[in-house]
Design a protein around this nucleic acid. Structure first.
Lengths: 149, 149
DNA sequence: TGCATTTATATCGTACGCGATTAAATCGTA
DNA sequence: TACGATTTAATCGCGTACGATATAAATGCA
């Protein structure tokens, strides 16, 4: 009957609403966080993904490109140019593993090590910028981790 | 005393651990979600950000570039090329607003409208891929929205 | 040993994302 | 009404992300 509402069309309108999409909430929040970090990291002369790579190396250095990629869930096609920039910046050194020439070993330079203290300040400043209670942030973080696929 | 633990160094090690960083959880989850959408959207011939732009237009079309940008929290430097690609794909039309020649009006073409039904399937398939209870996803989405800055 | 297979990076092309800048149209106001 | 300020998109340069492919080294195995 023409007087009946078109249920399937109504569903499409509702289901596809931007403010209902988890994917957009995630996309948008990730972009916002990158923008929040930018001015803090500009002062250190590094980008946000470069900061993440350094976090990995501050935990353990040296590491292979593959290990860094596994930690960050990134391909070598992303990491190789990024690591070369960190090398050019004098923060890391890159070289083939003598034991296995396929591997490239990445290690922090003294300058890279020294940047850790400044990174700690960045983390604090970011927390201040967020202006959100810590338990809320932790809860969000754990829920994001659970989304792992 | 040299036997005392270096508290501040210990703090740096702990605070900067990758698995403690909200920023990395967000970054990583966003990348993963993009990778999950890719094969679904490949079938439609669009990318993930293009899909988000279409979501905006499926809610209301026509709209100006500025309105789309506000909805997605993106700059014209990102949107202009993206919208041109959607135009080339025949999904949208772009043209200056006769009332105000500064504005560019973006509107869905019939092909763009028609793609909405397929998008609904994509949203369903994505939900299946996530394999996570709906309340959990809703809770995460709302927490992400609260992170707005 | 010899050679196919596997593994670890690198390279390439495409598409973002954004700050900085530019260009054009409109607005506000003296 | 003239004209500087504001608004709106577009352009440019840089740095990701990633799939596809290439390359070289190591490994497996007949």
């Amino acid at each position: 009957m023409s007087s009946e509402p078109d249920i399937s069309k109504h569903d499409a309108v509702e289901v596809l609403r931007l403010d209902r999409q988890l994917c957009f909430a995630l996309y948008s929040a990730a972009n916002r966080v990158t923008r929040l970090y930018r001015p803090l990291l500009d002062a250190l002369g590094i980008t946000y993904p470069q900061y993440l790579a350094l976090l990995v190396l501050w935990e353990k250095s040296p590491r292979t490109v593959g290990e860094v990629g596994e930690a960050l869930d990134l391909e070598s096609s992303t990491l190789t140019p990024l690591l070369k920039r960190l090398e050019t910046a004098g923060l890391i050194a890159r070289g083939r593993d003598p034991q296995d020439e396929r591997r490239v070993i990445v290690s922090l330079t003294p300058a890279g090590e020294a940047m850790r203290d400044k990174a700690l300040e960045v983390a604090e400043q970011f927390f201040c910028k967020l202006d959100t209670p810590l338990p809320e942030l932790i809860e969000l973080r754990e829920r994001l981790k659970r989304l792992a696929v």
